[in-house]
Nucleic acid binder design. Structure first.
Lengths: 219, 219
DNA sequence: AAAAAATATCAGGAATTCCCCTGATATTTC
DNA sequence: GAAATATCAGGGGAATTCCTGATATTTTTT
C-alpha cells in the first residue's frame, strides 16, 4: 500500500504531537511535516506536496485554517484537507465544505473516528461526523424546498468582519471609529448590518458568534 | 522504579489521547484515567488516587482547572498537579502556584519539556518553564522591594468573577441583572469594582483579561 | 472577642454613549 | 444597470458610565 504523506497544522505543539502519534499507529501514514499557522501551512504544503493535510480550523495569528484551506486548494487541488475543530458549528460546516476541505472532525472525537475520517478522505470521500452530515443534509433539503435561502450563509464583508471583531472584543463604537478612522455613525451602520446578516438580536450572541468563529484570538 | 499512576484532564478527547500517548513512551508512567472537566477530574482523582494529574487550565463547563486543583489539593495533598495551559500569562502563574499546582507548562511546549516537567514534579519540585520562572522571581523581588504590592494579584470575589464573565460575553447590565436577580445598580457596582481591582480602563481590556483567563468558554 | 476589611446589595443624578429608525451618496462588483 | 459595499447624518429614547453614598452580612485580622 502507498504511504500517505501527511502534514499536520495546529498552533499547539503538544496537540500536533498528539495527532502525529495517533496517526503514527498506522503504518501507511507518514507525517512529513508540521506547521503552526496558516501561512506556514501553505509554505510547507507547497514544498512537501503532502497527500493529506490535517488542519486546525481556528488558528489566531494571521491566516486561519479556513483561509489556508481555500488558498491551498487553488494550488494543490489534489491534496486532501481534513479539518480538525474545537466546536461543532453548522455554519463552519458550510464554509469548510465550500473552502474545499474533505472532512470535518471535532477535537472532541474519539480516536477511531479520526482514523475513519482519514480513511474516508483518502478514498476521496467527504467525511463529516454523523450529526454534521445530518444537519448538512437537512439544510440542503430545506434550501431546495423554499427556493435557495442561502442568504443566511453569506459572508460578512471584510469591513464588517473587521468591525465585528472589535465589537466582540469589547471596543466601544467610539473607539472603533477612531481606530478605523471612520465616524461613529458608520460603525453603527456596520454593526446593524452585521446583526441583520447574522440574524442576531443581542450583543452577547454576536460575541458568541465571534468566539465560535475563532475571531477572538489572543495576541 | 515505581510506576507513576497518572490522570489526564482536558476537555478535548484528541488532546487527551495525544498527551496519553506522549506519556506512554515512558515505561514508568501509566495513565490510569481521563476526565473531560473539573468535576469529573475531582471524582476520578478521589476514586483512582493517582500520583500525578495533568490538567488543562481552561475548561469551560463548570469547574475549571484552577478550581479543580484547589479542591483536589485539599483532599489529596500528596497528589501532584501539572497544569497544561494554552497561553502564557503571568497572573495565571500566581494563581496556579497558589492553588497548589506543582507545575505550569504551555501546550505550545515541545515534548521534551513535558517530560522534564513531569520528572521535576514527581521529584517534588515545582516546574515552570524558563520565562515563567523568571517572571515569578522578578515579581517576587519587586514585591519585597516595595513592600508587598500583592493587591494586584488579589482575586476577584466569586460574584465579581461571575459578573465579569457575563460582561465579557457581551451581556448588557440589564441582562446580567435579570439573570442574577439583582438590580442594574448592583451590576454597575460589581463592574466598577472589577475594573478597579484589575486596574483596567476600557471594556475591551476586561474582555482581553477574560479571554486570557479562559473564562470565555463556548457552551 | 472586638475591630477592621471585604462582600453584596441598592440608590440618585448627570453626562455620555448606544440603539434603532430613516435616508443619502460614491464606489465597486456582478 | 442593479446589487452590494462603505461611508455619513439626524433624532429620540434607552442604556451605560461615573460620581457619591448607604446598609447588612461575612471574613479576616488584631
Amino acid at each position: 500500500m502507498q504511504v500517505i504523506r501527511t502534514l499536520i497544522v495546529d498552533d499547539h505543539a503538544i496537540v500536533r504531537t498528539g495527532v502525529k502519534m495517533l496517526l503514527g499507529k498506522k503504518e501507511h501514514i507518514e507525517v512529513v511535516g508540521e506547521a503552526a499557522d496558516g501561512q506556514e501551512a501553505i509554505e510547507k504544503a507547497l514544498s512537501l506536496q503532502p497527500d493529506l493535510i490535517i488542519m486546525d480550523l481556528s488558528m489566531p495569528p494571521g491566516k486561519n485554517g479556513l483561509e489556508a484551506t481555500r488558498e491551498l486548494k487553488k494550488s494543490l487541488p489534489e491534496t486532501h484537507v481534513l479539518i480538525l475543530t474545537m466546536h461543532d458549528d453548522e455554519n463552519d460546516l458550510f464554509r469548510v465544505v465550500q473552502a474545499g476541505a474533505s472532512g470535518y472532525i471535532l477535537k472532541n472525537a474519539i480516536d477511531s473516528e479520526l482514523f475513519s475520517a482519514v480513511d474516508a478522505v483518502l478514498r476521496g470521500q467527504v467525511y463529516l461526523y454523523p450529526s454534521a452530515a445530518k444537519s448538512l443534509v437537512e439544510d440542503f433539503l430545506e434550501g431546495v424546498k423554499r427556493g435557495e435561502d442561502l442568504s443566511k450563509y453569506k459572508l460578512l464583508s471584510n469591513r464588517e468582519e473587521e468591525v465585528l471583531v472589535f465589537i466582540a472584543k469589547g471596543y466601544s463604537n467610539k473607539e472603533i471609529a477612531e481606530i478605523l478612522h471612520i465616524s461613529v455613525k458608520t460603525v453603527e451602520t456596520h454593526k446593524s448590518k452585521i446583526m441583520d446578516k447574522l440574524d442576531l438580536q443581542k450583543k452577547h450572541e454576536l460575541v458568541a458568534y465571534a468566539i465560535k468563529k475563532g475571531l477572538l484570538s489572543l495576541e
